[in-house]
Nucleic acid binder design. Structure first.
Lengths: 208, 208, 208, 208
DNA sequence: TATGAATGAGCATTCATTCAT
DNA sequence: TATGAATGAATGCTCATTCAT
């Protein structure tokens, strides 16, 4: 019975893996349950043994995106180092992580639009409304915390907060978007320019 | 002999306006032709008097987004001022324009996902593939030009180029995304933080 | 007022001409009112000033086919000549007439199928059920009459009647079908083989 | 693990049977997929599990008609007997076969009109253009062969060929048309009159 | 549990017909 | 009378979901 449960979970995970690949390739809207089943090499009906509905699959994919942001936050928590360095590290980590999992990244973009309103559910708030906003709030407050801390440590200006945190997150997400829209954009290489621009700006460096 | 007179172009524009509103509200994928018709207060079939297909409507919406970027570029061309100021002006202009037309902004996000693969058209090259990449390339090269010019003028570091242009565009688009996902984010107010962060960075300002 | 009526009738005729051409070209099922209007170089709505409905147009086209058969019958009535000759003349006349008006011929084929059941009218007997059967009955009884007469005159076997009349009509209509399906078939040249086959058969001719 | 077992080919055949019945009853143009589904006592969508499109259904029906002509040809090939007898046998066989399957016969009439131009497909070459012409060419060349052979055997006139073959085919098809248009016409009983008329003509039989 | 056949609601699109001008 | 814009019912086809095996 225990092994059964493990099998079940593993199977579910396999299907979700497949779904993520297909979602990334064709987008949510264009992905049919049958595509997912085919990618997972199972029968269409079997998908429903592990997920209640197409929507549930979408939600599970969302969970993965959200979970990744948790991991990222956890990575940033590494204490000991000065906050600026942790900030820079977090930017680099985020870029690396997104670059390493382009499928999840692509799905996130889909979530930006899908998160808004789902087909077929014009009225109902769709149980949990797929709260992408929360994910970004988490990012921002994490970064705002680092900014404040670095301010206190004297490595960044004091008084930095929400707006600047938004800009930092924006630099990452915006670079991601450009890459997804145009694969020529070297996303993975943009970590340093982002760090440099955000921390030092684009003005000529003072002599020091 | 007295044919009913209708300003076809104006009517078409009305319908497109309606479509843009609905697309922004429900997303492309969830928008049915009937929704557009209802929003435009006409009958479903009438939409087809002005647009060949649902896809054509989508394309026309894309054209609007693309056209807006043209306007933006034109605005930035205002010569006379130093390049840094024009850059800052462009950032402020972009933010103001996007904030003023949230519907088009929302559509752009849809385009990020839709641009990739369109449902139902796995084979056909889809005429013009809705080239959002081109729009961003335009933005980047425009900004890269300003960066180089400002570098020559001594207001920014020399040697700035593509990567930094990407970061500037990213800051804007990324802030937009956060606003769209979470209306609490004060997008319109982010113009200054973006300008300040990109130009001066977040480090403590040197005495001068 | 009189001239008005003439104009009206002429206009109606123009439209019917156009309809016949389009029906012949695309078939009833595939012909839209707009096609007819375009062929007649008038506006779509104007068709309805002269015909109550699409169906009325179809009926009017049928009338033409029926009217032609009347003309044919009249031509055959030319008395004086022996019945066999009038029969042969009628066959030749029918072939010539059909060959000369392929559009009407094509429409007749459409009527064979359409006469059966009309789209949208599954129940109602459709007023006058477009009685093609009557047309053929007319042909057959005309020919049966000639056969009997020629029998009496000693030029054909006595006792010929309905079945043989059907075969004669069949030879003409069947040749027509083959021509319409395959333009290579030299319909106009088939009058003689039809006459020869029907009158003399295919067996070797006796010495006389 | 115990998949629902269904004889796909048989099911497909069932649906095609239903389609043929409905096509015969209402005509192609007036037949909606839903009619076919209802006749087959399945749901509308299920039709698409076995046929790609409405057009595919039509084509499959055509195949049946074409296949029947093959069977007919094969039957005529029965060697041993003199060619005239085989010819007469073929005429009788064709009439019997058509009379026995009036649905297919009715469909053939629809094909005569449909074969010309298909609605909705003004551009595409429609894969195999539903080549009814080929079917009739087959019939004619088969019969022309028998005529020539019978000529050599002295049972028919020498020199008979294409035109006469066309007339023989015409007699059959034309009789069919009259029956379909008017059920009073005793098609099945027309085999003998056709044979007699074509072989012996309508003239008085010479003493022998 | 796995399958895939079956279902039917849903949607894009077409087109006969109406009607304001 | 002529026009052609507007309408909306009709219909082909798709696809999420169910269910018998």
């Amino acid at each position: 019975m225990a092994p059964k449960r493990v099998d079940r979970a593993a199977r579910r995970e396999d299907i979700l893996d497949a779904a993520v690949r297909v979602f990334a390739r064709r987008g949510f809207a264009a992905t049919r349950i049958e595509d997912v089943a085919a990618e997972a090499a199972i029968a269409k009906g079997s998908v429903y043994l592990y997920f209640d509905s197409r929507d549930a699959l979408l939600r599970a994919a969302f969970e993965r995106v959200a979970a990744r942001s948790e991991r990222l936050a956890a990575a940033a928590a590494r204490p000991g180092a000065p906050a600026v360095e942790r900030l820079a590290g977090m930017i680099r980590g985020a870029v690396a992580m997104l670059a390493a999992e382009p499928d999840l990244a692509r799905i996130m973009v889909d979530l930006w639009s899908t998160g808004r309103a789902r087909p077929g559910t014009p009225a109902e708030p769709a149980a949990a409304p797929l709260d992408l906003a929360e994910v970004y709030r988490g990012y921002r407050s994490l970064i705002a915390g680092l900014l404040a801390e670095a301010g206190r440590e004297g490595d960044l200006r004091p008084g930095l907060g929400g707006p600047e945190a938004t800009v930092v997150v924006a630099a990452i997400e915006g670079a991601l978007v450009q890459w997804l829209v145009d694969p020529e954009v070297p996303f993975a290489d943009l970590a340093e320019p982002i760090v440099a621009t955000c921390l030092d700006g684009l003005r000529p460096r003072p002599a020091g």
